[in-house]
Computed example of a mutant assay.
Amino acid sequence: MTSTTKTRTVTIGTGTYTLEELKGAYRRMSEIRAFEDRLHIENTTGDIPGFIHLYAGEEAIAVGVCDNLEHSDYIASTHRGHGHCLAKGCGIRPMMCEIFGKDEGLCRGKGGSMHIADLSVGMLGANGIVGGGPPLVVGAALSAQYLGNSGVAVSFTGDGGSNQGLVFEAMNMAVVLNLPVIFVFENNGMGEATGAEFAVGSGDIAGRAAGFGLPATVVDGTDYFAVREAAAAAVARARAGEGPSVIEATAIRFYGHFEGDAGLYRTPEQLQAFKDSRDPLKIFRERTADVIDVAELDAIDEAATTEVDTAVAYARAAAWPAPEQVLSDVYASY
């Protein structure tokens, strides 16, 4: 690590960052962690409708990728989408309102946890269809290519979703049309309760990309800097008109597949070992220990927790959608 005091920049790995950029990245990861940890508690009250799938443990992937994107770029998410939403710029309060089913939610309370979308920030939506994101970003990338606006589109897909046929079709089409797309595979080792080493026949998600003529890289998804550097190269390639690429990011989810999952496929000892050694926030702290004071990072954590607490209180008190809205925003009018 090197630093330049005059310009207040630091070099970590192959990237150069300002201290403000580093603190911003940590803030976004901390907000995701606080959001998910609080929902883990709130879900036990029975006041949240629908299923919840928590992203804690994978924060560095969403933030590391989205920190390379412009406001106008697009992403498509999964059923485990809160982290992607926050990383792309969706607001904490309207997200919380959406999860609680309230009228001030991003989708007027009709989407819930698994279907949050905010087109104003390029978030095409969380998706209950396993592997449903890649075809969406192929469309978004085709639009960007046609308009010539240098936009890119990114899909986030789990290791389970990586086995879906429509994912392969999307990858092939992206190559055929030379689209500005990045396919990010978040390999947390478990497709629901099935280990990736069993479900992925080749044992190599990134290696499949070669079958379509796609370049691919594998990164440690718990290291923000590794993810950001890999995503920076992929985004630059896409913007330059050099076509799509694949990133496989490995990480561990800290909670069950869904809230209420007994998680019998992992022992408590295994899970604790993961949290001790593969926590993205801890790793970020270690890698920036020489340039950011611990007290500053602690203050960021406290602020994130306070903001999430405030959002929960607001969402609980917010109004429900009016009954007459049940048929609005259901069908498109052309």
Rank of each mutant, 00 (worst) to 15 (best):
V246R: 01
N172E: 07
R38C: 10
A313V: 11
G105L: 05
G13T: 08
K23A: 03
L264R: 08
L106S: 07
D47I: 03
E42N: 07
I129H: 08
L177F: 09
A209G: 10
A216V: 05
A295N: 07
A311I: 02
F212G: 06
S150I: 00
H71Y: 09
T4K: 14
G15F: 04
C66H: 08
G213E: 12
A196H: 05
R278V: 00
A240K: 14
G139M: 11
F35T: 04
S162D: 04
S72T: 15
T157C: 15
T78K: 05
Y224L: 15
V308T: 00
H53Q: 13
P180D: 13
S3R: 10
T4F: 13
G83N: 00
H40C: 11
D279W: 06
S155G: 09
P244H: 05
G15K: 13
G57Q: 00
V138S: 02
G158C: 00
G133V: 02
S277M: 09
I32P: 09
K110R: 15
C90D: 11
D118F: 04
T157Y: 03
S202N: 12
E104H: 01
T11N: 14
E186D: 11
A319W: 03
A295I: 11
A273N: 14
G111H: 00
I283G: 00
Q325K: 11
G89D: 09
T157M: 10
T2S: 14
A140V: 12
L281T: 05
Y334V: 14
V121F: 07
V137I: 15
I32L: 12
R80K: 10
T305P: 00
W320K: 13
S277W: 06
